[in-house]
């Protein structure tokens, strides 16, 4: 049971890393908290659902389409909302209010448009049946979702550390003032980071029906809590720390389900409280921030 929880947790955790990555990127670059992140994941799931049922598109094909589409849609959203927010004196605090409102609007409109019933994609649309990983049997759909998450995180890492745009992004994350003084266009970097954050949320949403059983318009708030926990555990503001946060959350959840199943729901709260009490910068905070 322990080995199964550990193996399953690692696979599950890769997905949770993807779940929190976009949230952390947006915070890292702009120091704002996108409380609508969970609802964007839900919209990604709905997009995948309709692409499959109306156009017969496999989730693997839907993934780049949804991510690309969400990136493009995020740019006008950024232009409409973010510049004024970022110009405010208390942008970080005001972002809670702004994105909480956006989250409520998205949830209400989704409930009206799609109805409250659960929706999912058949496992065969990705991969049905079990697969043996690390000596343990896990659903193939988990393995595929985790693989996509690892690829997305890998591409994100490469772009952040081996491209000019990534260099600028890291400069803004380290010090927006110094980055601006060096001639970096803060607004452009912020817009792209916001777009990427939304795209990563959409991508995570495509695989949500496989990892979370089913999706409903009301799922956004609980996903926010999980995403926030993975971000804080890793290191708030350091996107790559989210990978570690996701793995800790995934393994922790399955261990809780194995040994304290009734209390498994408490895990995100327990992780948040423990991190805030004992290591507020996150488990990888110092090293990543120095780097």
């Amino acid at each position: 049971m322990l080995l199964h929880a550990l193996a399953g947790g690692l696979v599950y955790g890769c997905y949770f890393a993807l779940l929190g990555l976009g949230l952390n990127l947006v915070f890292g670059v702009m120091r704002i908290v996108n409380l609508a992140h969970g609802d964007l994941i839900m919209l990604g799931a709905m997009a995948a659902y309709f692409l499959y049922h109306l156009a017969g598109l496999s989730p693997l094909w839907a993934a780049p389409l949804v991510a690309g589409g969400f990136f493009l849609l995020a740019l006008p959203l950024y232009a409409a909302l973010l510049p004024r927010l970022l110009a405010a004196r208390e942008a970080e605090m005001l972002s809670f209010t702004l994105f909480f409102g956006l989250q409520q609007i998205i949830e209400a409109l989704a409930a009206i448009a799609f109805g409250p019933s659960e929706r999912s994609l058949p496992a065969r649309s990705l991969a049905a049946g079990p697969i043996v990983l690390l000596g343990q049997s896990v659903p193939k759909s988990w393995a595929f979702s985790a693989l996509v998450a690892v690829i997305a995180i890998g591409l994100f890492y490469l772009s952040l550390h081996h491209t000019r745009l990534g260099l600028f992004t890291r400069a803004v994350m380290a010090s927006p003032e110094e980055a601006a003084a060096s001639g970096i266009d803060l607004s452009r970097i912020s817009a792209i980071a916001f777009g990427l954050g939304v795209a990563l949320a959409g991508l995570a949403g495509v695989f949500a029906p496989f990892m979370l059983g089913s999706v409903t318009p009301a799922m956004g708030a609980s996903l926010n809590l999980v995403a926030f926990a993975t971000v804080v555990v890793g290191s708030l503001g350091a996107p790559l720390g989210t990978i570690f946060g996701g793995l800790v959350y995934g393994v922790g959840l399955l261990l809780m389900q194995t040994y304290f199943s009734t209390w498994a729901d408490l895990l995100p709260d327990l992780l948040l409280i423990a991190i805030l009490l004992f290591r507020p910068s996150g488990l990888l905070g110092r090293r990543l921030r120095v780097a």
Partner: peptide, 14 residues
């Protein structure tokens, strides 16, 4: 299990 449980794989194994 909590009503919010959306993953039963490990529980099924147990």
């Amino acid at each position: 299990v909590p009503t919010s449980t959306s993953n039963y794989t490990v529980l099924i194994d147990n």
